[in-house]
């Protein structure tokens, strides 16, 4: 049974910009791949980079953080902190041997429904190229 590998992407979207941008993609009926699963946070600054590690450990093949453009954060600065953290965590994961294409970040504003679709397409393509994430996948317990 050779099913083509479909990556599973976990995305953290900030409520005010990226989540709204994703909603706009929906209202505009822009179609994108269903590989992406969205977790809503209030601000990209909320995203602890260890969430990304946890997601990869749980079995996600790719992760995405998306927030407001720098300078436009609804909470003023959250995305600046998120940017610093993301850049460092990506390097750390790369050092451990995780394909950097799995670890993504984007700036999507509330009016950028079309950009959101592009971001998803690119994230899925990169995760597809990197292959299934089996490096340190957590064992599933079956009680």
């Amino acid at each position: 049974m050779s099913e083509e590998y479909e990556p599973n992407i976990v995305a953290f979207l900030c409520n005010w910009c990226s989540y709204a941008g994703a909603d706009l993609a929906g209202t505009s009926r822009t179609h994108y791949l269903p590989n992406i699963k969205i977790i809503r946070v209030m601000c990209s600054g909320r995203v602890n980079p260890l969430f990304l590690v946890n997601a990869l450990q749980q079995g996600a093949d790719g992760v995405l953080i998306s927030g407001c453009h720098p300078g436009d954060c609804h909470y003023l600065e959250g995305n600046f902190y998120a940017r610093r953290r993301f850049m460092l965590m990506r390097k750390l994961l790369e050092h451990v041997g995780v394909d950097p294409g799995r670890v993504n970040m984007s700036w999507v504003s509330a009016s950028e429904g079309a950009k959101f679709k592009e971001v998803i397409d690119e994230t899925v393509a990169k995760a597809k190229e990197a292959g299934p994430m089996d490096q340190f996948r957590r064992r599933q317990l079956n009680w």
Binding site: Y81, R83, M105, S106, E118
Partner: peptide
Amino acid sequence: PLLSCYNPQDPEEYIM
């Protein structure tokens, strides 16, 4: 502390 501050010009090469 490093992660308690930011620079508006921080690098962002990999960010879409």
